[in-house]
Design a binder for these strands. Structure first.
Lengths: 193, 193
DNA sequence: GACGTTTTGTACACATCAATCAAAAATGAG
DNA sequence: CTCATTTTTGATTGATGTGTACAAAACGTC
């Protein structure tokens, strides 16, 4: 009986996510969100409540999509070494190909909300933990396959790889030096053996 | 013959740096900068030109002070292994002890100015390169001392360690799990051997 | 002690911000 | 067709933002 929405929630959310990702939370105005989503002010507030709630939803959307993409790479066919390398090369390629050099939105969001008590911080924290777990699974498989060192603690290796991965994303948003980023990737792989 | 300033430029700059570091560029208002520096509007603009120029100066100040502190640790007495460990433990301690969880201001600044053509981006890029060079020197010394692997490329090892370091700073601003961060530190050291 | 110069304080201009509100429009059920 | 409900539209509101203008104040110098 009510009037139906003229827009798709996910489509609008994706558009808002892109805008927040590109400009950051504070630098994004509600007018820009209206423009990128195609919604009017009223519709935007009616659908998402407030700028900050929309931001939370956008970060949540990013972590879901990003995690799914990561998992897909880490569970693709191939040896564990190949799959970890594929993940690292993938972020190098995407970070370098992005003309706006946005890097990883989860990192950006954790910087944007640093210090504050913010639901977004919990989202990013959870995202980081899920990545650690996903990496641990690949490393464990690699240990069983004899590709990775077995005389070292699995959790420690996973956390170190995760840390290198996030550093790679920080550097990938700043530098254009592909060789330097590939060095990091190969160094991270060498550290597993 | 002119009227002398009532404040010290470096002191004011340090105060502005702290504010930008804590809140980020966009979320910091000029009123807050006046409050933290103790300067009036006129004095602030007269001395630093604009909010953005002040930000550039603040980031420049951070990179200088931060680089000096890093170098001091990396060139302190002790074996290369001990010095790298000291650096990693130092950032873990400072990141966890900071109640506002600000992380590394160079990383934050690179996120704040991502995509834009901004002098700050050059500052952070240069900062990252200097850290890479400093790490390379310690690693080279460690290779000569027989502490680190000599069958791997020095630059590659330095870049990987650098990346792990920055990942550690990202995680250090989000988590409270000291054991996880220490895992990263020990994993980074194990990767050098 | 007067002058030129810079700093300081404050008021203000002008833009932009997030959010609200009320009326009109669009739907399906009865 | 009528009604209840939600969406849409666009104007508006009140706060806040950065930057400027200007006059008074504080120095060193002559």
């Amino acid at each position: 009986m009510p009037r139906p929405r003229e827009f798709d929630d996910i489509t609008a959310l994706d558009a808002a996510m892109e805008t927040f990702w590109t400009k950051g939370y504070e630098a994004t105005s509600t007018a820009e969100l209206c423009e990128s989503t195609g919604l009017g002010r009223g519709s935007l507030y009616n659908a998402f409540g407030s700028k900050h709630e929309l931001y939370e939803a956008a970060v949540g959307r990013y972590t879901e999509v990003g995690y799914a993409a990561t998992i897909e790479i880490l569970r693709a066919p191939g040896t564990p070494t190949e799959r970890v390398r594929a993940l690292l090369h993938w972020v190098i390629d995407t970070d370098l190909a992005d003309p706006s050099r946005r890097g990883c939105m989860a990192i950006n969001a954790s910087v944007d909300t640093a210090g504050r008590t913010d639901p977004v911080t919990d989202l990013t924290r959870r995202h980081f933990q899920r990545l650690e777990q996903a990496l641990r699974e690949v490393l464990e498989e690699g240990q069983r396959a004899g590709e990775f060192a077995t005389d070292r603690d699995l959790t420690r290796m996973a956390r170190t790889l995760q840390s290198t991965y996030y550093g790679l994303r920080v550097l990938g948003a700043v530098t254009q030096d592909r060789a330097a980023l590939l060095d990091v990737a190969e160094g991270a792989l060498a550290a597993l053996r």
